[in-house]
Structures are given as C-alpha cells and as structure tokens.
Design a protein around this nucleic acid. Structure first.
Lengths: 203, 203
DNA sequence: CTCCTAATGCAACGTTATGTTGCGATAGAG
DNA sequence: CTCTATCGCAACATAACGTTGCATTAGGAG
C-alpha cells in the first residue's frame, strides 16, 4: 500500500509520468482511436485494443474499469487538436480561413466518425455530456475570439452575443457534417460567410 | 417452408399486415424507443425491450438478427414525425415559426437522446449512414419549401441554393442541441433569423 | 549501482448479453 | 373450419466484459 495516497484520484493519473505507464496509456488511447475509426463503433472490444497497443487486456481493464470511459477519454484526447487562430485584421478573411481550417480538420472520414462518436457519447450519461459539451465550448473559443476581435475593430455589431454570431457560421457546417452529409465545398463556405456577415455587420 | 418466398427480403416485412405480427412489431419498436430514451444508449438490451413489449426475447432476435438494426429502424420510425409547414406569406414569420416548432419538437431531453443516437448510428456503417442522411434530407424538405416559396415571392435572393440558405438557419440550432448544449431560447432563435435574413434578402 | 515498489503480464474465473435452434401452441387468413 | 405463419418457451453456444491472485519487470530513489 502506498504511504501517501490521495483518497479520490482520477483513474488515469500517472504516478510515473516519464516512464512506462505514460507510454502504455498513450498506446492504449491511440489504439482505441485507431480501432474506433477503422472498424466503427460497434466493432470495438478490449481484446483488439490491447493487442494493437501491445498490451495485455487486463491492463486495459485495470486502468479503465469501464470501457466507455476509455473511449470517451480517447476521443476527448483526440479532440484537443488546436484550430489555428486566423488574424488578418479583416473579418471576411478571418472567417473564411477559420471555416476552411475547420472543414479541413473535421472533413476527413476518420474525424467524422470520431465526432459522431463524441456526440453519441454525450447521450450515454449526463456526466459525459458535461465533459463533451465542455470540449466543444473550448473548441469554439477560437471562433468566438475571431468574432470578438471583429467587434472590437468596429466591423461587427455588438448587440448580439458572440456565441450566437459564431453559431450562424459554424452551424451550417456541422449540420452537413453530422446530419445530411451534403458536400462541404468552398462554394458552400463562401455562401455561408456572405449570408451571415450581411446580418452581423455593423449598420 | 413457405411456398413462394422472395430470396432477398428485408427483415421486417410483414406478411400479415393486419394481424398480430404488426402489433408485435409496433410494440417492439415502441419499447425500443422507450428504453432508449429512458435508460440511455448503454442500458439497452434485448431482454428488457422484449419484457416491455410483452414479447419473448427470441421474437426480437428472430425479427432483427442484429440488435443495431432494430435500434436504427426504431429511431427512423420515430424520426418521421412531421414538422408543420408554416405559410404566412412572410418569410420572417415563416422562419420564426419553423424554428420554434423545430426547437419545440427536438428540444425535449428524450428527443435529444434519440437524435444523438441517430447521429451515432450513422457512424456504424455506410449503409445506415445513407438511410439516416436520407431521413434528415426528407425532414429538411419542409424548410427548403419555406425558403423556395419566399424566393418565388421575391423576398429572398435566388442565386444561392435553398439548402444552403436553410442550413444557415437550422445549423445554429442543431449545433447547440448536439454539441455545446447552450440554451435554445426565443432570443437565440430571433437573432439567428435576423442575422440570416439580412444576407438572404433580395437586395 | 542497488533496492524497492508501482505497474504490467499471465491465466483462470464468474457474469452478462447476444444470437440460435427445436418444438409445441396459437392466432390470423382464406 | 383448416392451414400455416408467427410466437412462446427453453436450452444452448458464443463472445465480451470485468475481476483477481500471483509472478515478473521496469523506473525511480537513495
């Protein structure tokens, strides 16, 4: 028994951050994402994850007593890839660049599966939903910053919350991504930027 | 063995549409939705579905060899509830009414779980994805009609596809519903309508 | 370098849920 | 009324999850 042990400790806190434990953890999370994007959501089991990670199955179960926690943690881990912050001093250019980089990032088939799985995870339990919505809120922070800067420059009106304005631009993209599967081409992005900006501009 | 049997037959085609089979099918689909919305996505098993439907478990497995097919079919069945078509002769009123009825319908926690599950189902196989995206395309048909009528009346510009224009209005709602869990209040809806219409109006 | 211990490998086990099958019973359809 | 598709029932096989005890290994501390 360890001498000084915190009574309430998250399951994946590593006591030896530089050592094997960190490698194993990373390998398992990576293997989970790979399996998830490769075989889809249903074809996911601990044995294959362990095999791909070069780890025994019991190790997986020891670290994550519930497999759903592992999947959620892996997805959140993968979802923290940063979207670059465009800053051209012009809201049209900034928004176009932002939406294009979003589409570039989430447009791929693997990322699409990951995001869909993330949405599904949020439906499993309120606790997961809270974490997932936090991930999205954090991710949208970049977009809000773009909006706020434009408001400060006097390009956009300041009587509507930045999250609302941003939703007008990002919403159409995610609807096509998640629901209708319509194409996310440059023409669509340009049209969305044009339509939304017409209303958001300072009169 | 039946005398005249189609070799490739969908699993849930009923040969006695008026009889017990139809009742059983309906009961199972309904029980699936109830279980799904009640206990969430993980707490879903054939035994409880069968019990709630007043049916033996083997009957469930006989009709739907794969439980995922049952869930998907039940969700699609439940997703065909019609959104009323607003027709006030004015695009602002029509859009506001449409978005409000969408929010009223999908805003509830049960429906939210259903929609998230539908999104997740689409990630399981390309075949399911096609069916699901078809469901959404059909559902958005009402909104497109609203847009097209406004274009015909000369209220909106005609140089942008109706699906794109509609996405600007519905997108923000679904983003909040599926991703960030921000509130879907009247203020938000009105702002979205105002922002989008400013760009979509005929100059 | 050596010791100590956290973390992993390994194997065996119990539990739960899925999906299948054979047979008898029943309820619609003609 | 008769026939047969469908269902109830029970038993079975399979697969995956999750747990546990013990041996082994590797990293950190001195």
């Amino acid at each position: 028994m360890p001498p000084t042990e915190s009574p309430t400790e998250p399951p994946s806190v590593v006591r030896r951050p530089g050592g094997r434990a960190a490698r194993v953890r990373k390998a398992i999370l990576s293997a989970t994402i790979t399996e998830l994007t490769a075989g889809g959501y249903g074809a996911l089991n601990a044995a294959r994850i362990a095999e791909r990670a070069g780890v025994h199955r019991s190790t997986v179960h020891r670290r994550w007593p519930d497999l759903d926690q592992l999947v959620t943690e892996a997805l959140i881990d993968a979802a923290t890839a940063a979207i670059p912050m465009p800053d051209n001093g012009d809201i049209t250019a900034d928004l176009t660049a932002l939406l294009h980089s979003i589409v570039d990032y989430i447009g791929g088939p693997q990322t699409r599966v990951q995001i869909r799985a993330l949405v599904a995870d949020a439906a499993r339990s309120p606790a997961i939903a809270e974490v997932v919505s936090h991930v999205w809120t954090t991710r949208f922070r970049v977009g809000e910053e773009v909006i706020i800067r434009a408001v400060d420059r006097g390009e956009l009106r300041d009587d509507i919350p930045a999250t609302t304005v941003l939703a007008v631009f990002t919403g159409p993209i995610y609807v096509r991504l998640l629901l209708t599967d319509e194409p996310l081409d440059a023409e669509f992005i340009d049209a969305v930027v044009e339509l939304g900006l017409a209303g958001a501009r300072r009169p």
